[in-house]
């Protein structure tokens, strides 16, 4: 079942189109930065963007900061919203369920397929942005022509060795995959409620936008720790020295809670749902 879903994922051109669009945003930003050499003011603009001008090896981290807030969750919401509702609206869900597989297994297979997509998309962004960073910003030379060590500077000012950078980027990938689980679970649940893939995706995006607005509102401080997007940017803490695990742990925990609850709700709804069309 999982193999079928994965094959379906990688057979569809839309997977590559979405990954390509995700890669295009950091590439466009890099071209502008490299051409104008105008970094964003300190504390403004995307994280790490001001640092990449002096060392291109940090560009994958800057690329993550660019795609995570909007582009990646929108992609996940669209795909997750389509996973069950899309099958229902095109009439293939009935034939899918005729096969001797349980509905629970189908849901799990859909989720595994979504996680695989997130991994694929992030790895694509990381690899393309690393190459972009090396080509456009270079390693070891600043604008003044001073030779720099191959290490990159952490947020705390101490250097991160190349091996340390790889480990932190892997940690980032793992954390972002976990962060996207909540989005996937919300859209997957809505996808079992409606036959409209667009409706499910829009519903998930509405939840995320509401969460993002409430995160910035001091009046909503009491519920802030429980909002799905509260800890999305905590992966930045991998680049502090020592690594700040507090928000990373909380972010992973809250995503797992959303996953368990919403996957449970999707399961409760989908197992007894009438497949009308």
């Amino acid at each position: 079942m999982i193999r079928v879903e994965l094959a379906k994922l990688f057979r569809r051109p839309r997977t590559y189109v979405i990954a390509g669009l995700l890669c295009a945003l950091p590439f466009t930003v890099a071209v502008f930065l490299a051409t104008t050499r105008i970094p964003p003011p300190p504390g403004q603009g995307g994280a790490f963007l001001s640092a990449v001008l002096s060392n291109g090896t940090l560009y994958p981290a800057a690329a993550m900061a660019l795609v995570l807030p909007v582009f990646l969750p929108v992609s996940v919401a669209v795909l997750a919203g389509d996973s069950v509702a899309g099958e229902a609206s095109t009439g293939t869900l009935r034939y899918l369920l005729i096969r001797p597989v349980g509905r629970s297994r189908l849901l799990v297979a859909k989720l595994v397929s979504l996680v695989t997509f997130v991994l694929f998309a992030i790895m694509t962004v990381l690899i393309t942005s690393y190459v972009t960073g090396l080509v456009l910003f270079g390693v070891g030379t600043s604008a003044a022509g001073v030779t720099l060590p191959p290490d990159v500077t952490s947020l705390s000012g101490v250097t991160i060795s190349p091996a340390g950078l790889v480990l932190r980027l892997l940690g980032t990938v793992a954390y972002i995959v976990i962060s996207m689980l909540g989005v996937a679970a919300i859209a997957l649940f809505l996808s079992t409620v409606t036959d409209s893939a667009l409706g499910a995706a829009m519903g998930a995006l509405a939840v995320l936008v509401t969460s993002q607005v409430l995160v910035t509102l001091d009046a909503a401080a009491a519920i802030r720790p429980y909002l799905p997007t509260r800890y999305w940017l905590a992966w930045v803490d991998f680049f502090r020295e020592p690594v700040l695990w507090r928000d990373i742990e909380r972010g992973a925990g809250i995503q797992l809670v959303y996953l368990v609850v919403l996957l449970g709700a999707a399961w409760a709804n989908f197992l007894t749902k009438d497949i009308a069309n």
């Binding site: 300190p42 504390g43 001001s50 947020l155 705390s156 940017l233």
Partner: peptide, 23 residues
């Protein structure tokens, strides 16, 4: 801060301020 950090160190010899935004 989100994507930034400003650190103050007190050592027996002096104080040090590290500002990532200003590098």
């Amino acid at each position: 801060g989100e994507g930034t950090e400003r650190d103050l160190y007190q050592t027996p010899q002096a104080q040090f301020v590290w500002d990532f935004g200003d590098n």
